[in-house]
Amino acid sequence: MSTSEYTKVYSGNFILVTRVKDELEAKGIIPIIKDEGESQRLAGYGSLNQGFQEVFVHNDELNNALAIVEQVKSEMESTSSE
């Protein structure tokens, strides 16, 4: 069994992932963005997940990253309900 040094903290469309990524980077956390749809497109396969991305952070930064993601999600929810 392999263990990863990275954990997924968020998934969503390109726009939302970009917002989360920017907030993480502003706090000194460098995320990894995984885009399966783009990988499949580049390999010549079709994808139903086009534009869907996942954000991963190093396990050492996980607690701080989760707090930032929760803050961004609550800000996005509050602006969408106005």
Rank of each mutant, 00 (worst) to 15 (best):
M1I: 14
M1K: 12
T3D: 13
S4R: 08
Y6I: 09
T7N: 12
K8C: 15
Y10S: 03
S11D: 11
S11L: 08
G12R: 02
G12P: 04
N13E: 14
N13C: 10
N13Y: 09
F14I: 06
F14H: 05
L16A: 12
R19K: 11
R19S: 10
V20W: 00
K21E: 13
K21A: 12
E23Q: 06
E23W: 00
L24Y: 00
E25W: 00
E25S: 03
A26T: 05
A26N: 09
A26D: 13
K27W: 01
I29W: 05
P31Q: 07
I33C: 08
K34I: 04
K34V: 05
D35M: 01
D35F: 00
E36I: 04
G37A: 07
G37T: 01
R41L: 12
R41C: 03
R41E: 13
R41G: 04
R41D: 11
A43L: 06
G44H: 07
Y45N: 14
G46C: 09
G46F: 08
L48D: 15
L48C: 08
N49T: 07
Q50K: 06
Q53M: 15
V55H: 01
V55P: 04
V57H: 06
H58S: 12
H58K: 09
N59S: 14
N59R: 15
N59P: 09
D60H: 12
D60V: 11
E61F: 11
L62S: 00
N64F: 02
A65G: 09
L66S: 11
A67W: 01
I68Y: 02
I68N: 03
V69K: 01
V69Y: 02
Q71A: 14
Q71T: 10
Q71I: 04
K73Y: 00
K73W: 00
S74R: 09
E75H: 07
E75W: 01
E77C: 06
S81D: 06
E82D: 13
